[in-house]
Nucleic acid binder design. Structure first.
Lengths: 193, 193
DNA sequence: TTTAAATCTTAACAGTGTCAAGTTTAATTT
DNA sequence: AAATTAAACTTGACACTGTTAAGATTTAAA
């Protein structure tokens, strides 16, 4: 049939076209009208699937977060013994590496984050930013039975996240010049903790 | 005289009005026209002083960087012995504290930075991002004569910056919930390095 | 088969950055 | 002191933006 009025897959197409634009030109140059045109659809068609531009951006972020979580979990499962503290190092490496491989995702995810992050040790995790929730659960799994106090675990969690997140931030800043191999340097630094 | 045609101070007024807007509503809601209106001047008047909106934003960032540098230097000089490694901790605390006190400045300065950062140990520092140049020079001053290799110093510099920058990033994310005292937690974490 | 709902369309609105051309004031030269 | 030039501003216009309103087309439900 030659029906071109209904796209069929517009919602996910818009998300993927949007992410393509993010990787090409960054969030600042992304416009709803461009994304719509990429999908061969009128300017206002997206409003059948998203309340606003911000709403589409949130959906795109969730799409990226899913990929991010998969990368983190691949790193974590490189050790069979899930109580080996080395899994934290692998997670950290995966964290930084994901953004080195997808530099545009870092400012996109973290400039105006779409999700809540609860740092409190006994805080509600059900709506927590998934990567952070994952870090929290792993620290608990490794150190919870090992006599570490809650306060020490909280310090560990925040410190780990700060270091790794800071490394990712530096490694992906487009104005940072560094002539050596980031991956190696990051491994060095994470190991020396 | 009743001359209101020439503003007299427009360039700096635009910068300050722009920063006021950043603090009120963030960079995303800042428009050239709003800033111009705040200064009681027409939409295109800013073009006599800045080539583009981006150009004004860069000037605003440099204005903020000056304040930032002052805060860092106040922290550094809390010890008279400038070779005491504790000055690095004071610098780190000042770094994070500056952004806790001015949360909107963090995404503003680092989302699309206006200056180059050269991480290479022997790199050219003349055009380097001033706060980073400062960190580099202090690490050199403290550890340069103390038998530390260049490679170790580079590790130290990147690691310090990553940790402190990561802490600032976390502490200022508007979606991060944390019910305790950030300043104390940051002190804990920086000291435990 | 009619009705309702979902998905799309065009037309229009106010707001944006920026250019072009002209006006007013200040500075410089004669 | 007068004339000229340059700097700092103005209005008007352009293409682009997010978003709303009202209507058209297709699919799903009754």
């Amino acid at each position: 049939m030659t029906n071109t009025y209904h796209h069929g897959n517009l919602r996910s197409s818009l998300i993927e076209a949007g992410i393509e634009l993010i990787n090409k030109e960054g969030e600042k140059k992304l416009s709803l009208r461009k994304v719509a045109k990429m999908c061969g659809v009128s300017q206002t068609a997206p409003y059948s699937h998203f309340q606003s531009k911000e709403d589409l951006l949130d959906a795109m972020k969730n799409y990226v977060i899913d990929q991010f979580m998969e990368a983190l979990e691949r790193g974590i499962h490189s050790y069979e013994n899930q109580k080996n503290p080395k899994v934290l190092i692998e997670m950290g490496k995966s964290y930084v590496l994901f953004f080195i491989q997808n530099p545009k995702y870092f400012p996109f995810l973290f400039s105006e984050p779409c999700m809540k992050v609860n740092l409190c040790i006994d805080g509600d995790d059900s709506n927590n930013f998934p990567p952070f929730q994952l870090l929290k659960s792993i620290v608990f799994r490794i150190f919870g039975d090992a006599g570490m106090t809650k306060e020490e675990m909280e310090d560990t969690i925040i410190s780990l996240w700060a270091t790794v997140h800071g490394l990712a931030s530096i490694a992906t800043m487009k104005n940072v010049y560094y002539d050596k191999d980031w991956e190696k340097k990051i491994e060095d630094i994470i190991w020396n903790k």
